[in-house]
Design a protein around this nucleic acid. Structure first.
Lengths: 256, 256
DNA sequence: CGCGATTTGTGCACGTCTTCACAAGCGCCT
DNA sequence: AGGCGCTTGTGAAGACGTGCACAAATCGCG
């Protein structure tokens, strides 16, 4: 605070811990803050209060302050946070000061979309290679990149320094691809295939399953439906839904 | 437990609470169990132990047992769980006994992929309508469905009973689309746009942001790099990375 | 120069989630 | 029929995450 250290190279002086170990929950929210901060910066804001930022990020303001406090004190009491400074700080912590190369394996339906998704490029990532196991797809050009065969991974890894791999293959192929990625030194994997991957210790895997999200929503739908079906009944009785459900959606009426 | 009630119509007798309120964390894992169970069923297993199922789902076995215990006792001590029965139970709880209609708004890059994603169909959902605000996209046929204009939502909602909407539009359009969805009675939204949606109480929103997942991985990469960069140094000293940092990501250390 | 308005940073209490460890229950084998 | 091995279901403890409420710090203004 007293004097702005350049956050890109924090602790030049030597006293600041390079990477405080943040709670996972905090890490998961930082990208959200970052996005909100970029929005603010684009609309000309120079500072923002925890209240303002938390609203933009959709979280509780106390939570936001605690999260930010884990990275150190980059706010000014009575004023708020310096938007630009905070952006730099968060980007540094998230390791986004350098543009990371990502290998995308599986150029099917989803892979295609990911290859063309500009949200990656705009947020610090660069798709360095597209790979697929299907020879008939090899050679295809997507968004300026030529699809190569997955067995070329070692070559690709030699050209680029890959640390992150994205798996967008069918579930049946995912484990093998993961093994190949790990073999060439990839230590972080984003898995879109609906299956569990087993990887050696030290390799991080995050999974995104689109259908799972829908199923979670479905549960809440089911729940809401069963509640609104017995508005007055209520209480502890909560006996199985009677026929009164009918009008809403007869057929889904659990029982049938 | 004593006697198997048919799970599709639980509580016909009247004593069983229709929907026990499950911890959110449990709900989020049920779809994973379900997927693992389907795999087991397909490979001919009739029963499975908590140990086996938890391994297939990638979780701790005690956690799995506690999760399942929340739905009631559907296991047999000394034997395990009846695969088919458990599938029915979980599908019932998740509200998947009926095929839910989903409206997908935004047929751009990502929307296209989602429209063609067979993981939805295979897990209890049916894309009932594709919508987009861009008139030039209206009329296009994707995967057997014709893209309609987003303003037709009321008509669509009248034809189908929509409860779930998926937003795959640019961030700028997302809030407006959400409002439109809510207006026609949608109470659950899966949002792929990188922004926070504000919706009335009673409407559930889940957000999936592909870039955020990468950023989280990036953090862990950064972290691993900074740790392996000072292998011997260690201890509490952890003083800020000296100039050597530049060299660090030189080649992702670790890798090679 | 001092005061009040404002906003951060955090101690504390609470709730949720995880994990261990073990008693209760079930089936099989003798 | 009885005992033994296996597996579930759960109590209790601990780790983790959340949110309130307030002291500490800063700025602007008179």
């Amino acid at each position: 605070m007293s004097q702005h250290r350049h956050p890109g190279a924090p602790g030049r002086a030597g006293a600041v811990p390079a990477l405080p170990d943040l709670p996972e929950a905090t890490v998961a929210r930082l990208p959200e803050y970052l996005r909100a901060l970029h929005n603010l910066a684009d609309t000309g804001h120079e500072t923002v209060s925890s209240e303002g930022l938390s609203a933009a990020a959709g979280v509780n303001s106390a939570k936001l302050r605690k999260d930010l406090s884990h990275l150190g004190s980059y706010g000014t009491r009575g004023v708020g946070y310096d938007v630009a400074l905070l952006i730099e700080q968060i980007e540094y912590v998230l390791g986004l000061t350098q543009r990371r190369a990502v290998a995308l394996v599986g150029v099917g339906n989803l892979g295609h979309a990911l290859a063309g998704y500009d949200g990656f490029a705009s947020r610090g990532f660069r798709i360095a290679a597209l790979l697929d196991a299907d020879p008939s797809r090899v050679g295809e050009e997507i968004n300026g990149l030529v699809v190569r065969h997955v067995d070329d991974l070692p070559t690709v890894a030699a050209e680029e320094s890959l640390a992150i791999g994205v798996i967008a293959t069918p579930a049946a192929a995912a484990q093998q691809v993961a093994d190949q990625l790990v073999a060439v030194g990839v230590t972080s994997i984003l898995n879109f295939a609906p299956c569990v991957l087993s990887v050696p210790e030290g390799v991080d895997v995050r999974k995104v399953d689109l259908a799972i999200e829908l199923q979670i929503l479905s549960f809440h739908e089911h729940r809401k439906a069963s509640l609104t079906a017995l508005p007055a009944t209520g209480g502890t009785a909560l006996t199985a839904l009677p026929g009164g459900f009918a009008a809403t959606d007869t057929q889904e009426a659990i029982g049938t």
